[in-house]
């Protein structure tokens, strides 16, 4: 198969206003930089973005917020950026905060055909309000529904034209599960290799989950909190 697409711009041209998009990354680590920048250039609006965080001022999802392209965010931890905070407090932006493990499992469930699941996380808290609770073997659980998206933006380390992907270190994070949970998954990779060059044992995301792939770069890979020791 050949799932290569020319560029990030060609890929985001597929996305209509009002789409729901999952974006990989934890903080700024492992975010799909090329696709976010292309979506910003194209100006697609009224988006629902599903991402662990919301970027920072001037980088990552932060640029989409500044351009008022995002209507709703589903995330686990936000507020690393002033524009987000402003839109949140003025209610211009709808925000749905989800416990991180529930967030991950809802995405996993979305990609795996699971209709709902019980988790102990959040029982008795605000996040359980309006949801069914049930006790199994003496533990209380909350019923959670899957998360799915129209598109997923995934950042891989290496990829091939079949869509097989590997990831590098903690840049993996939510990328592999988001790749499974969208109708159309677009992958950007740092190295695009010939089929067979990735050892099948090393493939993290099998190509079946990926519809489009392109070679990204150059990557900025900004660091949010640079902590170093002497040496």
């Amino acid at each position: 198969m050949d799932k290569r697409i020319d560029s990030a711009d060609a890929a985001v041209a597929l996305i209509p206003d009002g789409a729901t998009i999952m974006m990989g990354g934890f903080g700024l680590c492992g975010i799909p930089e090329m696709l976010i920048a292309a979506l910003h250039r194209r100006g697609t609006r009224d988006l629902t973005v599903i991402s662990n965080n919301a970027g920072v001022d001037g980088f990552g999802i932060g640029v989409l917020l500044e351009a008022r392209q995002v209507r709703k965010m589903i995330a686990t931890y936000v507020g690393e950026n002033k524009e987000f905070e402003r839109q949140y407090l003025t209610r211009e932006l709808e925000v749905d905060l989800v416990p991180q493990g529930t967030f991950a499992e809802r995405i996993r469930a979305g990609g795996a055909g699971i209709g709902a699941f019980y988790t102990p996380t959040g029982y008795g808290t605000l996040v359980a309000e309006g949801k069914e609770s049930r006790e199994f073997d003496g533990t209380h659980y909350v019923l959670e529904r899957p998360l799915k998206a129209d598109f997923a933006f995934v950042k891989g380390d290496r990829g091939d034209r079949h869509g097989n992907l590997t990831y590098r270190r903690t840049a993996r994070n939510f990328n592999p599960i988001m790749a499974t949970a969208a109708r159309v998954t677009i992958a950007e990779v740092e190295t695009l290799v010939a089929p067979g060059e990735i050892d099948p044992d090393a493939v993290v995301t099998p190509g079946i989950y990926v519809q489009h792939i392109f070679l990204g770069g150059p990557y900025q890979k900004r660091i949010e909190r640079r902590v170093v020791r002497e040496g």
């Binding site: 991950a104 499992e105 996993r108 270190r169 840049a171 900004r222």
Partner: peptide
């Protein structure tokens, strides 16, 4: 930049470390 902790701070990984997705982590 591809190696951070949950506080988004740069870290290192010890010998014998492993990486995994958010779903596996939780």
């Amino acid at each position: 930049p591809d190696l951070i902790n949950a506080g988004k701070e740069t870290v290192t990984a010890v010998a014998g470390a492993s990486y995994f997705s958010g779903a596996d982590s939780f």
